[in-house]
Amino acid sequence: MPLMPLKLNVNEIHEYEQNRPPYRMIDFAEEVIPGISAKGYKLLNEDEWFFPVHFPGDPNMPGMLQIEALVQMCALTVLTLNGNKGKVVYLLSANNIKLKRKVLPGDRLYLDTKLLSWKRGIGNCTGTGSVNGEISCQADFQIVMPDILKQFRVTKKM
């Protein structure tokens, strides 16, 4: 039976995911369909830690942090599956990264992600970030949940 869609505020996100400020790159998940998709957003406050250093006089969100935001959002698709709440998810690889628009202080970075496959602790994902309907970033990426991977640890029989 498919799991019900979830809406998660920041406190609820913390129950499922272990990223914490200042590295948490998602603020609200509008719709998480476990095992399928997750969408939501990050609000770029004026005082984000990276704005003063990226770059002085030209503050904008680093492209790799936009990709991290996609990864964190998509991770919710597997963390909301039964038995996975609160587990650690790592980024394994990323391909087809495109960064198309600056994300500036005050912007809302909207994140739309899909879990294309999930097998034995490895997920293939795709995601798009946008601001005011304009695409800012896109990527295909793989995530891994080490806890599940451990269940398939190779043994050498003598």
Partner: peptide, 24 residues
């Protein structure tokens, strides 16, 4: 896991857990 996934796709099979673990 990537190797196992590739083999499953190439041969259109689904390996049992014990076989994934024994594939040493």
């Amino acid at each position: 896991m990537s190797l196992i996934a590739s083999l499953e796709e190439a041969f259109e099979i689904m390996l049992e857990t014990d076989d994934v673990i024994d594939f040493s």
